[in-house]
Every structure is written in structure tokens, then in C-alpha cells.
Amino acid sequence: MSFFPGKDPEPGDACAVDSIETLIIPRTSDIGGLEVRRALPTAKRRLVGPFIFFDRMGPALLRPGEAVDVKPHPHIGLSTVTYLFDGRIRHRDSLGTEMVIAPGDLNLMTAGRGIVHSERSPEELRGNPLSISGLQTWLALPDALEEMAPAFDHTVSADLPVIHDRDFEARIIIGAPHGAGSPVTQYSETLYADIQIASGGRFLIPATAEERAIYILDGAVEISGETFPSDRLLAFRQGDEIIVSAERDAHIMLFGGAALSSKRYIWWNFVSSSKERIEQAKEEWRTGRFDIVPGDEEEFVPLPG
């Protein structure tokens, strides 16, 4: 989740596969019974294309009385991308949006010059065991759009194209890999896909995107004769075609896109090409100058000390 206070992930051991630039083993924190693994950013790898943040939530089964409760908190300079495999989360934001995210749906919330949102288990589902599993990623906005007006887009699962192949099934979340184009808005060239590789199957990652990586969700995959287990992020060298194969069923996320034209700074929930802009956002949140979230006005996450 976007408020996750855990430690930064660390690069893994040196990899023998020349086409893999970075191997990252995410750091894990427990937040109220929900295990969260953070794979980006790290000290050695800040971005993959526009992706500056990559969290895996769960899978977890919350006991009766437990729930996801991320209080209202601010963002600038980025888009949050929420994608669930299991469970439901109610999103509310300072634009007045209220939306329950279901598995397979895509929530794209673009902060631009500033937005506030909360993420909570739906009230009507509380009191029962709650399953939750999904990803939250952040896309840094390009220089010209960092201060755009905030926006929210929701795309239901049925509107995301799916490629069916003997070796794999790929749901295209953002971008157009393998020729299937997603309707989700792109503010810079972006690639994001949910890929299930069948036992004995393989998936080709073309060299078309400037920067590419995979996160292994379940199972193990093989690349150039080396095997990688689940919960590893592998970032690839530019210009190489990558063949990902699986002896048994495996589940991966493919992501990346064009590199940004300038450096990005990240502090708490703020992303910007300017340190001064982040300092301004900190002061605005501290002094209550961000908008409120209708329907969730009573609580908020204070600025970290």
C-alpha cells in the first residue's frame, strides 16, 4: 500500500545471466496482518520505465475484525495503479470518486499537482474473513505533466484485452505488447501485463520497450538456463529479447516503458523532478492545504516525522 513504512528492498546476488541488469529481493513488512513486499525503489534501481514504486500486497486472509484501512494521504507527481488478484478495496479520493476495486479491474489515479485518497476494506464486507492479494505500483509523470490536474480512471476487467496462447495467457493492463492494446490512459510509454505461463510453456518479451522487468508472483521461471523463484524482480538489459520459460505453472507481471528524461526524487508519497516541489508538498500537507476526501473526512495519515 502507498503508506507502507517498511525498509527499502535490496539488490540480490550477482546474476550469471548477462541480459539481467538487476535482481531485486523485496523487503517484507507486516501491516495489521497484511504482508507487503516492496520491490521498488531501491538504492541501485530507482525506476523501470516510469515505474518508481512496486508493492505486492498479500496474498493474505484477514481475520474477522481485521481490515485494510489506509487513511487519507496525499500524492503529487505520479499515477497510482491498483490491480487486485483477490479481495476488494474501496477507493475514495478528493475528486469525490468512490469506487470498489474488484479482482482484475484497474484503478489509475493521477495525482498531478495534488490529490488525497484512502483505501479501505468495504464496510459491507467487514466482520467476515477477508482475502486480499494484489499490486500497487506508481508511475512517475513526465516533466510536462507533473503539475497536471488530478484525474481518476477505472477500467473493468472485461475491458482489458487478453491474449490466449498454448503456452501462456496474458492480460494487457497498460500498453500494447504482442499487438493487443489496452484502453487505459498512458502519460508516457508504459508496459504492464499480467502473464500466466503454462507448465512447459514460454513467453517472449520483445526488445521494443526501452526498459523492461518482470516480477515473479508464483512458481519459478527459467531465463537462459538459470532458474529464479517467486518474489524476485528481474530488470533486463536494453535491446535483448528475453525468453521466460516455466517447467510448472508460473505467474509473472511484465512492466516497464520509456525511461524518463530527467531524475525523479521520491519522499513518502511525493514524487517530483524538483526537491523544492517536494518540500512545498510537505508543507502543504502539514498545514492542511490539500483537499479533503468526501466520505472519509475524520482521519488522515500525518506527515512522517
Results as ranks from 00 to 15, higher is better:
Ser131Leu: 09
Lys7Tyr: 12
Thr137Leu: 15
Ala111Asp: 04
Gly104Leu: 10
Gln136His: 08
Ala39Asn: 03
Leu47Ser: 06
Thr97Leu: 10
Tyr83Cys: 08
Arg56Lys: 14
Ser79Leu: 04
Asn107Arg: 08
Ala43Asn: 09
Arg92Glu: 09
Gly96Pro: 03
Gly127Leu: 11
Pro11Ser: 15
Asp55Asn: 11
Asn107Tyr: 05
Arg126Val: 09
Gly104Met: 09
Leu135His: 13
Val81Tyr: 10
Ile52Trp: 00
Pro11Lys: 12
Asp93Arg: 05
Glu21Ala: 13
Asn107Leu: 14
Ser79Val: 05
Arg90Pro: 08
Leu84Trp: 02
Ala102Lys: 14
Arg37Val: 02
Arg46His: 12
Gly32Cys: 12
Leu40His: 00
Gly114Met: 07
Ser94Arg: 03
Gly49Asp: 04
Leu61Tyr: 13
Leu62Met: 12
Glu10Pro: 00
Val81Asp: 04
Ser19Gln: 14
Asp8Ala: 15
Arg126Gly: 09
Ser133Cys: 12
Val81Glu: 05
Asp55Gln: 09
Phe54Tyr: 07
Asp86Ile: 06
Met57Leu: 15
Met109Cys: 00
Val68Gln: 03
Gly104Lys: 07
Leu61Gln: 15
Ala102Val: 08
Arg46Asp: 12
Leu135Gly: 02
Ser29Trp: 11
Arg113Ile: 06
Ser19Phe: 09
Pro26Tyr: 07
Asp69Arg: 15
Thr137Tyr: 10
Leu84Arg: 02
His91Asp: 00
Ile31Lys: 05
Val36Leu: 02
Leu34Ser: 02
Ile20Thr: 04
Phe85Met: 12
Arg88Lys: 15
Glu123Tyr: 12
Ser133Val: 08
Pro59Glu: 00
Glu10Met: 10
Tyr83Leu: 07
Val70Pro: 02
Leu139Thr: 10
Thr28Val: 13
Gly112Asn: 11
Cys15Arg: 11
Thr42Phe: 03
Leu34Arg: 01
Leu106Trp: 04
Arg56Gly: 03
His75Pro: 05
Phe53His: 06
Val36Cys: 01
Leu95Thr: 11
Phe51Asp: 06
Thr28Phe: 09
Leu139Pro: 00
Ala39Gln: 03
Ile31Ala: 08
Leu47Gly: 04
Ile31Ser: 10
Ser131Asp: 14
Ala16Asp: 15
Ala111Cys: 05
Lys44Phe: 10
Phe54Leu: 10
Val36Thr: 06
Phe51Ala: 01
Asp93Gly: 04
Val36Gln: 02
Pro64Ala: 13
Arg88Glu: 15
Ser19Glu: 14
Gly112Ala: 13
Val48Cys: 06
Phe54Glu: 01
Gly32Met: 06
Lys44Arg: 06
